[in-house]
Design a binder for these strands. Structure first.
Lengths: 230, 230
DNA sequence: ATGGCTGTGTGACTATGTCACATACACCCC
DNA sequence: GGGGTGTATGTGACATAGTCACACAGCCAT
């Protein structure tokens, strides 16, 4: 149950669908929801687990990933503020176990609602339905894009794209290890190291322990295929 | 509009959710739905297209696949009787373009409902909601498994699994070309040919033009990882 | 029998992943 | 400052998968 006004304001800001939801739903939402916090690095869900509740992220970031039989990992998607772990919703609504792992990458603050409420509100609130369905559709499309990338796209191009994406948040100096890149892309650390070294040898980036500095954004854009000219 | 009793019976058989749906929804369903047929090999949806209606399969089979920039293909999933193209539903409900291609592998008979009805019934019928959500969840899990396979699983094991799966429908004689296997798995024809030749050289299958005969099911099960002993 | 079309086999080469080390770097403690 | 530890990175050898370019085989129609 959430009663504190400043928290209610933050939630309203983070989840705009509440603005146009019917007031009865909104009242029950705040009545039934609970606030939780997680430290960075905490395992949120494990593959095969049952889903007991649905979390809506208020602050922080979580990563959902698959773990391969060879020990390598691939990130399916990341959750930020205003988002919900749609695999959990899917799991709740269809009674299948959670098919991946989820971990908090930063300290996380979330709003948690129970299985029963998730289901009830699906029938009662169009705003809630559209919110969840919008998230599912987005994630479904993301995962399908990932199949395409993994099956058909060269790793060097995927690394270039990842570096560019990271640079939008942190500028051209990126704190990242080769293993992190490998774990995001489902590749191996050695392959990532070699490709980064190649990028460095040709002068397009500079690498150091745990960081990468981008020196040639246009080249990386072309490399990733985003510039439109390959 | 569907009025013919034998067709109504077939639809009720194919879509059991109608049995426990409320009668008002069922009445409107048959009022609004339309029957369509497609010849084998027809393109149903193309990547980037808008989705105008949702099809529920009454007979036949359809394949949904991604086409890579290198011209290779990978099958995301197949639809059979009683199923709906959940990418279309997703596309309808979130206004994003269709993210793959869909083709009828056999002659197809389907029930088609419009965008507006899909959306309206989502709010009105719990049975409809659960039907669609059950399909979405299943497909979501399928696609996530595919990410894992493509990223982490060796092609030979995937071929063994595909052969076993095909054999459940057609016995140990499978009519399939190497290119079809490659297109299902997102691999190349040459790689498939080599692996099949290896399987043949060691006596586990026999290959001919357009067919594969399985000679050693236990070995293939072990190879695919399904037998539990690798 | 001949021709056309399509499926398959194969060699050479490139890209990516695995394994096994070796080396480097950052940090902490004495 | 020196030493130790833990972890990140570099690298060589080799295996697996994909690309390119042909050559060959099989099937069907004329």
């Amino acid at each position: 149950m959430i009663t504190e006004q400043s928290l209610i304001n933050r939630i309203n800001d983070a989840f705009p669908f509440l603005h146009h939801a019917d007031p009865i739903f909104v009242r029950y939402f705040f009545l039934r929801a609970q606030r939780v916090t997680l430290d960075a690095g905490q395992q949120i869900c494990s593959q095969g687990a049952e889903c007991g509740s649905l979390a809506l992220l208020l602050d922080g970031r979580a990563r959902v990933y698959k773990l391969g039989e060879n020990g390598r990992e691939i990130t399916l998607y990341r959750l930020g503020v205003g988002e919900s772990c749609i695999l959990t919703a899917s799991c709740i609504l269809s009674h299948v176990p959670f098919p991946a792992y989820a971990v908090s990458e930063t300290d996380v603050e979330a709003i948690v609602v129970s299985v029963a409420d998730v289901k009830r509100w699906m029938g009662e609130s169009e705003a809630w339905r559209e919110y969840l369905f919008g998230l599912i559709s987005g994630r479904f499309a993301d995962v399908i894009s990932m199949v395409e990338e993994v099956a058909f796209r060269r790793v060097d191009r995927r690394i270039a794209a990842l570096l560019l994406k990271r640079s939008t948040e942190s500028g051209d100096g990126i704190a990242v290890t080769h293993q992190e890149i490998a774990s995001d892309l489902g590749s191996s650390r050695e392959v990532v190291s070699r490709i980064l070294k190649d990028f460095e040898t040709t002068g397009h980036i500079k690498v150091g322990r745990g960081y990468v500095r981008l020196l040639d954004i246009p080249w990386l854009q072309a490399k990733s295929g985003e510039g439109g000219l390959v």
